[in-house]
Amino acid sequence: MRSILSVAATRLRKGDIVAHAFAFVFGAAVVGVTGLLAWELWRNSALARRQFGWGFLVSQTWDPVAGQFGAAAFVYGTLMTSALALIIAVPLGVGVAIFLAELAPPRLSAVAGMLLELLAAIPSVIYGLIGIAVLVPAMRQWVQPILKTATGGFPLFGGPAYGIGLLTAGIVLAIMIVPFIVSVGREVLLCVPREQREAALALGSTRWESTWKVVLPYARPGLYGAIFLALGRALGETMAVTMVIGNRPEIAASLFAPAYSMAAVIANEFSEATEELYLHSLIEVGLVLFFLTMIINVVARGLIAATAGPGTAR
């Protein structure tokens, strides 16, 4: 297609040049907006960057009254909730992707796939609403006490059962990112050549063995890509986490303890940050989020492209 178009391009007429220039402006605008976004975050966090340096990421003190800001507790909360979400969502999501790509009849697979896309379309504030009403009481009354007795005072599952906290936020996040793992994971699994499965089956392996020992290893980079993409979503997810994480800027040993995430602190405190240093510190938290998601998205796309091959990689 490219070559045909480029032959035509050698005969660009005047009107075509204008059209090209016109479209170019908008293409460049997309790059411009993204660049401007990075620049605005960088420029408007200057005060905090100058004052705290790299210590911003290490210090746990978040004291707007004293003008001392360190984001370590938020970074910890974001990383922990995302890790918990991945621990729950990866087996679940990969399981669903295997079912849809390897087992289910095409029609069932299409219907289930569509339902999961609808699941991904549910606004995050609604997950938060359900989280407060259903998950938090369930965690307080059932899950946390049971985990506590089952693990016999292991500090990770210790402390009072508030219902809100790291674990609850991790579970809500897990539910929210499963559809992302499934939709990319299924595509990646479908990219595995049929001959690979047939060869494994012909050698006498069971369906599961062909899936586990042949299909999954073949699709591994793409599956990692799907997981990274989901991780990118989890890191930046704001509303649902804000509503169930407890919003306390502390690093506690227990997963039941209330915590805080980077996105949540921005959501809660941004409109009340009247002093410039306070505002710049919050924007620096946003800058950290920007770099985190940027790195993770680049890795994810590279991995997916590696599996999908030159035919489908864009």
Binding site: L37, G236, I266, G286, T293
Partner: peptide
């Protein structure tokens, strides 16, 4: 831009 957390767009 698509992967950017929506809260960062807000900032």
């Amino acid at each position: 831009l698509n992967g950017m957390p929506s809260i960062v767009i807000g900032i």
